[in-house]
Amino acid sequence: MSADAPLVRLRGVGKTFDTGLRALDGLDLDVREGETLTLLGPSGCGKSTALRMMAGLIAPSEGAVSWRTGARPEIGFVFQEPTLMPWASVEDNVWLPLRLRGVSKARARAAVDEALERVGLADFARSLPRELSGGMKMRVSIARALATRPALLLLDEPFAALDEITRFKLNDDLLRLRETMRATIVFVTHSVYESVYLSTRICTFSARPGRVTQEIAVEAPARRDAAFRASPAFAQTCQRASAALERAYGLEDAP
């Protein structure tokens, strides 16, 4: 494939689970290099399933998932919960992805320190997860996803369980990470505001079985901050995204 082909391409993807649940149907989706793509939709619309497919954790029932590089690129995955090993220190949790590839702790040192530095937790390397707040645990989880220097970062409603102040702070952290890491990010959320604040493109999902109903490009200043959040452009994009969601669900509700 050519160099400007999408990093991940989903074509005609459907998924029926063993339980008979139909999660996705006819999903077409491209993830372009360098973008921050948000999959927006309410809980249970199949967007997490789509994300897990991009990670290669779930195989589609029909259709195809293909990666530009042929094989799956280096991926970092952040779950809705911090999903840390409670018996392992912060640095050992961040070391895990490298450890599973046979990298010793000594050789992983630099990468682990750098990842912790990026999320501002360098001073907590030897703490245990239980000693950290919810927001800090989430940052450890992000650091772990960064440890392998992934080309594609997948986040599955990572801030849904956090209070709003912590959430805003982590949103800004993520924007800063994007500036320095140049990773492609796919972000799953049910928050319209979060999707507009963080992403360069939004795909709204229909109700289950999910597929993309609308694509919205986000016009934003180079630096996104509180001023952006208060700007008319922000409010307008939020309205468009909300309207797209309403249309998707209004149609679904019609007899």
Binding site: A55, L57, F77, F79, T83, L96, P97, T148
Partner: peptide
């Protein structure tokens, strides 16, 4: 989720 993470890597 941790089991999935192990599979991912």
């Amino acid at each position: 989720n941790l089991v999935e993470l192990y599979e991912l890597y």
